[in-house]
Write a protein that binds this DNA or RNA. Sequence first.
DNA 1: ATATTTATTTTAGCACCTAAAGTAAATCAG
DNA 2: CTGATTTACTTTAGGTGCTAAAATAAATAT
Lengths: 403, 403
Amino acid sequence: MALPSTDTSRLDNTLAVIRTLRDQGPVARTDLGKLNGISSATVTSISAELLQQKLIRERPPETLRANGRGRPKTLIELAPNAACVVCIKLSINEIQLVVGDFSGQVRHSEHHAVPTLTLSADDLEALLEEKISAVCAQQLNGFQRLAGICLAVQGVVSSQSGAIIWSPALSFRNAPISARLAERFHCSVLLENDANCIARVLATHPDYADCPNLAVIMLGYGIGMSVLINGVPFLGANGSAAEFGHSKYQPEGALCACGRRGCIEAYASDYALYRAAVDHLALPSGDSAHPSEEQMQALTQLALQGNPIAKRIYAEAGRALGYGIANVLALFNPDLVLITGSGVRGFDAMQPALRSAIDDALVAELMGTTRIESCAWDRDMTCMGGIAMALHATDAETLLARS
Amino acid sequence: MALPSTDTSRLDNTLAVIRTLRDQGPVARTDLGKLNGISSATVTSISAELLQQKLIRERPPETLRANGRGRPKTLIELAPNAACVVCIKLSINEIQLVVGDFSGQVRHSEHHAVPTLTLSADDLEALLEEKISAVCAQQLNGFQRLAGICLAVQGVVSSQSGAIIWSPALSFRNAPISARLAERFHCSVLLENDANCIARVLATHPDYADCPNLAVIMLGYGIGMSVLINGVPFLGANGSAAEFGHSKYQPEGALCACGRRGCIEAYASDYALYRAAVDHLALPSGDSAHPSEEQMQALTQLALQGNPIAKRIYAEAGRALGYGIANVLALFNPDLVLITGSGVRGFDAMQPALRSAIDDALVAELMGTTRIESCAWDRDMTCMGGIAMALHATDAETLLARS
DNA sequence: ATATTTATTTTAGCACCTAAAGTAAATCAG
DNA sequence: CTGATTTACTTTAGGTGCTAAAATAAATAT
């Protein structure tokens, strides 16, 4: 007689079980209960349903045992092939495709050089369709369903509307890409800022587990940021929150790629560092608008070896970054600011000026207990985060699809 | 046999009913159901409980009716005397005490001149105890219980730990005031930043109802801000988030009251405006460290009448404010930035420079659809917000106390 | 072989909620 | 004035979902 659609506790508990299994690997029913604050009777009931839906499976009992007395635990794990997701990272002149399974493991990864800046919105859509189709045809045998796609894009995106508002990798704007891919592949499509994907990965790292309020700054060709508030990415009203790279260091200051002056990015990004150095220092040759990793490493080396011009450039970048971070501390008061991205290669050269700029800018009360650290850069992190986010976003759907 | 403390739906629904009644005044049971997405059967059950606990009462049926056919609605309303809360606003050299009833109405308000900067932490506590006791003795007859106290303080406070970290009104720091008052008055004590109280009031105003992401900037002797994210104040890790006044306009810039240089407050606060003017313009005499309302109005008048020196001072303040707001837009991307506080008196004089500074600082994509508006200042708003927040925080307790 | 220990399942029962049926209290229509 | 209609509220019946406790399962320890 009653269909109380208001009570979401069963769904919540089921999702909690799935996510615990994804984060922790195989876990016994009693432990699932303890970890999620539910009774083992409920876990039995939930796992019976999931087993029947073939979303989980029981581990065969371990032959060699060393667990003391009592009935041994029966470990439960996610069925990896129950579903899969694809993450596409869209960067300047390159796209990366990664396939992840239901348990969160990466099953395939590929890179393609693509002249992204010359593409129209239709070109991009056609390209993505082609690449996703190809990867599906090759990789999806055995998988029961493509649950979702995550597009990780540098720049301003609207997750809500599924449109790329503005990206340095693209010459067009306001492209509603999600809906069209969703229609083509009959699955949900998540559009995410690349920094949010990386923050997601870092936030689950044990070193940073005690930092629910985390700001991750990505240094590279441009400068991006993701702010996690209680562990979830802060998006703002239109998805353009946390645009640290275009917050201000100096009114009327250096020219930024965005067209305005004085942005942090105009001092501390790769193109800004290279621009300040190119006329004064001997660096490997290449496209001066998009400095290569080799050129940037050479510049960093000069600074670390004591070249006064290079040192001055990195000190100014560190100072700009420091003042920018001071604003982040005053406005967001996070537990931790993590600096990463390919540009961390120059972090040591910037650090002294960065720290003294923060001290100049803020009184101790506003610094609070916030730590400021750097963290090694791994170019695969973006897609790992995208896979995790796509799975998280589609778990409820996957559950429904099997019921 | 079972005591499932996990299911909070009854409590949630009961609180939703109480809050709807507080926000909307008398409402009928059917409408409570529709407004909160629950069935009228559930509302009947909840209201029967609340009636028995004497937290609500039925309105006597209206004699003159004009509602068309059908059984007339029986309106339910909160019992105003079921509980009361006290809000104390602590500003420089003044405290205000306000008593609010369970329905959210203000029942009493008083101001006291107090040399706050000369007080020790113990003095402050003794003073608050005395004033609250006095107001309780006078005003609390008829009320069934003092449900809570809200302390609205300018500066950095930690709601979590109940300590005033740092306030321009006080000369001491890190004072754990909440716990001691809670013990003395046997009720919960909420410590809030004054800007958060004001933002709470503005957010419920119908003009701003469609702005779940709202930044409220308070101009006055100092400069504060509150950022609401999905309607709730953003506090950060230690409660020192949204310190807009000490975000940076210009490295090595003007000296701020905090001791550092280049803060927005050092350009656009009352003391900064007065400081820039005092040697060049004839203004009413008074304490130059704490300019009076009269002095500030005279200065604003000069700027609006076209005095070139005053105009230049307000233009520079507007420019600093504009660059600061540009950072707020880039980092928070709110739906609306509202500028208020006693300092809005000078908003018209600052506005042209403010708007052109924002245009200089940000590309259109980052401005997004954010509106920037000012809003009239009412010195009683802080305590209205404090009353609302204290009631909200104590509803669950009040419910328990009567069960 | 039996006791003990721990894991999982089954059972019994409670606290919710909702839809539908029942009751109450008006207005409208002749 | 009386019955039909309309709307508000209450009661009833039944379902979901959880938990504690009891029962069962499967080991180790003695």
